[in-house]
């Protein structure tokens, strides 16, 4: 019981095939309440596919997703957003015809069902938390860092219980990554469980409680980063046979 309660999201033999292509095979993962879980692996390992299946962009081919004790495998993406699963995207996806504030408002409006004035308040608060300014700017005028922050803010405005961050550090400088890591720690401080996909190992090492290594759609290893990074199978997956 205690063990179960401690886990907010888990998958059971989760698989996803794209026609003949196998993107995920029998993946069993657990995300604990309040933890920062890293998902790492070489390109094409199935990391983004995993997030896409967890957030409902497409259904699993086989297996189940259990969220807070309930099977959510069949729920569509917009419902998963409403019950507390939020995400950002590997390649930023700003809504180009909306301003910065309006982008962030969408989550509050539709996932939380707030009225427009309530959503403006909520979005302003979240933007303030993320250190975003000039909220009436069109997204075309934002820097790469601001767009990344905007994506996090948009996800946070849904009041999520789980936040999935897909390569948040890609395309931003090392200093900016430090700033982002502080923010992620603060988000965790609010009790939100976080799942990060990242290629920057410095970030994974500093940020995560635990990592899961995916390779060819399978779980290759699992554990604290310090441990996993010395696992010969993991090194082989990243660097090839002769390493």
């Amino acid at each position: 019981m205690d063990m179960q309660d401690n886990v907010i999201l888990k998958t059971e033999k989760l698989s996803r095939h794209f026609w003949g292509l196998v993107a995920l095979t029998q993946v069993d993962i657990e995300l604990k309440r309040g933890e920062i879980l890293g998902i790492i692996g070489p390109n094409g390992a199935g990391k983004t596919t995993l997030i896409n299946v967890l957030t409902g962009l497409f259904p699993p081919t086989e297996g189940r997703i259990i969220y807070e004790g309930k099977d959510i495998s069949a729920l569509p993406a917009h419902i998963r957003s409403r019950i507390g699963i939020a995400r950002t995207f590997q390649i930023s996806r700003p809504l180009v015809d909306l301003t910065l504030l309006e982008n962030v408002m969408t989550g509050a409006l539709f996932a939380r069902g707030l009225t427009c004035p309530q959503a403006i308040k909520k979005a302003s608060d979240v933007c303030g938390f993320m250190g975003l300014q000039d909220l009436d700017k069109p997204v075309s005028k934002l820097t790469a860092l601001e767009i990344k922050k905007m994506e996090v803010a948009r996800a946070l405005s849904t009041d999520p219980k789980i936040l999935m961050l897909d390569e948040l550090m890609a395309g931003i400088s090392s200093d900016e990554a430090d700033e982002m890591m502080d923010l992620i720690n603060k988000i965790r401080g609010q009790g939100i469980s976080i799942c990060v996909i990242e290629h920057v190992m410095r970030v994974i090492a500093a940020l995560t409680d635990r990592v899961i290594v995916l390779d060819w759609g399978r779980t290759l290893a699992e554990g604290p980063y310090a441990e996993v990074s010395h696992n010969p199978m993991v090194i082989k997956a990243y660097l090839g046979e002769d390493a």
Partner: peptide, 11 residues
């Protein structure tokens, strides 16, 4: 603008 973002915002 983006249906995937729309869904992810609960629309």
């Amino acid at each position: 603008n983006d249906e995937i973002v729309a869904m992810s915002s609960g629309i």
